[in-house]
């Protein structure tokens, strides 16, 4: 069994790897979307062009998700799910000996990528996130900032205390444009 604690990459390395996997997803997705026929022909999946294109859309969405987030772990686990789907699709296909050989190579490649996805996802799943009002990955707690008003008095008593400030004319609504009666 894979020993994650010993073999997992460092979080910084895993973050870089996650971005790499994001770009890989987009490239693969574009290929599946643009040239499904070439892919199905070489792998013995004829008639499955629509499915390959759908997988392409999935890959692109995952890639964009991975590149656009600071918490890539859920997207990486999504990739792992996609890898399983890919493997199942490849395993279920028929075709000539040559196509079976090509599929074998493809499955080996997918397996390799799956290992990377799992290692990366497992490493980044342990990386702490940001506290949010909904809970997020860290438990929100009160920091007691309710007394930090910054004023010498209550805000309602400080309202307008700086009305004596000289507001420069270039930062005001020009006189000619001000509302009537102002």
């Amino acid at each position: 069994m894979l020993d994650m604690t010993r073999r997992s990459p460092r979080p910084e390395t895993a973050s870089g790897l996650a971005r790499g996997l994001g770009w890989f997803s987009i490239a693969l997705g574009l290929a599946e979307l643009v040239a499904p026929r070439a892919i199905t022909r070489s792998l013995g999946l004829r008639g499955q062009e629509g499915l390959v294109q759908a997988y392409g859309v999935r890959e692109i969405a995952t890639g964009i998700g991975l590149l656009g987030t600071r918490q890539p772990a859920p997207w990486l686990w999504g990739r792992v799910g996609g890898d399983v789907l890919d493997l199942a699709t490849l395993a279920a296909a028929g075709g000539s000996r040559r196509q079976r050989e090509a599929r074998g190579i493809a499955m080996a490649a997918v397996l390799g990528i799956t290992v990377l996805d799992v290692l990366c996802a497992a490493t980044l799943s342990g990386t702490p996130g940001r506290a949010t009002s909904r809970g997020g990955m860290s438990t929100p707690r009160s920091y007691g900032y309710g007394g930090r008003r910054g004023f010498r008095d209550l805000p309602e008593r400080m309202r307008g205390a700086a009305r004596d400030a000289r507001i420069p004319e270039d930062m005001r609504i020009p006189k000619l444009l001000r509302p009537y009666g102002n």
């Binding site: 506290a131 949010t132 009002s133 909904r134 929100p140 009160s142 920091y143 900032y145 309710g146 007394g147 930090r148 008003r149 910054g150 004023f151 805000p155 309602e156 400080m158 309202r159």
Partner: peptide, 22 residues
């Protein structure tokens, strides 16, 4: 904003707050 402690500090300064996540 959406960060509770930041909204709390804004309220201390006299603001009404809106948590855009909720």
């Amino acid at each position: 904003d959406r960060v509770p402690e930041r909204l709390e500090m804004a309220r201390a300064g006299g603001a009404v707050t809106i948590d855009f996540e909720n």
